Simulated scan of single mutants.
Amino acid sequence: MKNKFSYIYLLMILPPLFWAGNSVLARGIAEMIPPVALSFWRWTIALIVLLPFTWKQVRRDWPTICAAKKSIFLLGLLGIAAFNTLLYTAAHTTTALNLSLTQSVMPVVIVVISFVLFHERISRLQLFAIILCTLGAGYIIIQGDWQRLMQLEFVSGDLIMLFAVTLYGLYSVFLRKRPAIHPMSFLTTTFTVGVVLLLPLYLWEWQHTPPLELNPAVMFSLLYVALCPSILAYLFWNRGIHEVGANKAGLYINLVPLFASFLAVLFLGERFQSYHLIGIILIASGLLLFNLPLHRTGRIRI
């Protein structure tokens, strides 16, 4: 059992890494790919990759899928069609710093939604752990300079991103209502919902924006977002939430700005700074505290 959960926690580290790459890439190619086109082709390519391997399993699970069509539609709308399209839209009007700052509040959003909708409580120690992780993520984002908080300028993209984070928080919490079907069937059906919902928006955008130029940068970007932050990240994320719950899994979102900083060091030539180390210590401490046994910690309502 211990090895199993160690494996699950290892898997939970990968989605934030892939999503950090997604956020950095979204900002970097904002001028090359319109937001709906990026989202539509991301999920379309991911679906094309999945179908040859999953259609037989989907056919076996079809009766259960039909019985749970409302849940699958809701999860496909929230987690597939809405969140990423809004993130890519926000990337056109706000900074990468603000994108990361907004995503760092997702664990708190998940905890609040879990309590409001399902009366799921957390301990005082876990609440303190959430605060530590949020501070760690925020410290990396502001680069250790609290004065930067006063200099942040919030625009429409920030409000769009906050709405996107709320929707993904709902997706994460509602995963407990997912039907009892194979994980690959679940990915295939929710990806299909996302593609179908995005198609009319893509056709509308296609008529009002310049044609997409398939240069190497665009093709690499589409392949990356289809494989890593889509298929792999969602498979690992959904499995992790199934095993450890939305509150505990949501805390790993705080790794997104940390990984984004590492990616900037690796690919953009930025230097590793002391605030990165402080952020790492705070996030690691929060994750450790949140996962301590609860037999000596009283639960509280938030």
Rank of each mutant, 00 (worst) to 15 (best):
W204P: 10
V36D: 06
R271M: 14
F272N: 02
M1H: 10
C66I: 11
T89S: 14
S185I: 09
S261F: 03
L11V: 02
I241Y: 07
I283C: 06
K177H: 09
H182C: 03
K69V: 11
L199D: 10
V225T: 13
N215P: 03
L50N: 04
G245V: 10
L149M: 08
I278L: 06
F186V: 01
S221D: 12
N247A: 09
G21L: 12
Y139V: 00
W237S: 15
L127A: 15
R27E: 02
V165R: 07
L162G: 12
A37G: 07
F115Q: 06
P15D: 02
V58W: 08
G136R: 03
F186A: 02
Y224A: 01
V116S: 07
F154L: 14
G250E: 09
G279I: 00
L14S: 12
A46Q: 05
I300V: 14
L266T: 12
M32K: 15
L255S: 08
L199W: 09
A90L: 07
S185K: 11
L17V: 14
L99Q: 08
Y252K: 07
P200T: 01
Y224F: 15
F83S: 00
W62E: 07
Y168W: 15
F259L: 09
G136M: 06
E270C: 01
S285W: 02
R299H: 11
L287A: 01
F186N: 02
L175C: 02
G240V: 03
R42V: 03
G240D: 01
W43N: 04
N254K: 04
P179G: 06
W237Q: 15
A82T: 13
W19R: 09
M12R: 09
Q57D: 09
V165H: 12
T44R: 05
V218T: 15
V105M: 13
A96H: 01
P63F: 04
W146T: 09
T192S: 15
I110Y: 07
I45L: 15
A46K: 05
L159D: 00
R124Y: 15
L294D: 11
W146L: 12
I283H: 07
N291C: 03
E205C: 10
L135Y: 02
M150G: 12
F5Y: 15
C133K: 03
W146F: 13
F53Q: 04
L125P: 04
V155D: 07
G76R: 08
L287S: 01
T93Y: 13
D145P: 01
M219E: 10
L97H: 06
T190V: 12
K4Y: 14
F191E: 09
F163W: 08
P183V: 10
R176L: 11
A82V: 10
Y171D: 06
H276V: 00
M161K: 07
T85V: 03
Q207S: 12
P210R: 13
L175G: 04
V265N: 02
I140L: 04
L287I: 15
L212H: 10
R42A: 01
L10A: 14
R296G: 10
I110F: 10
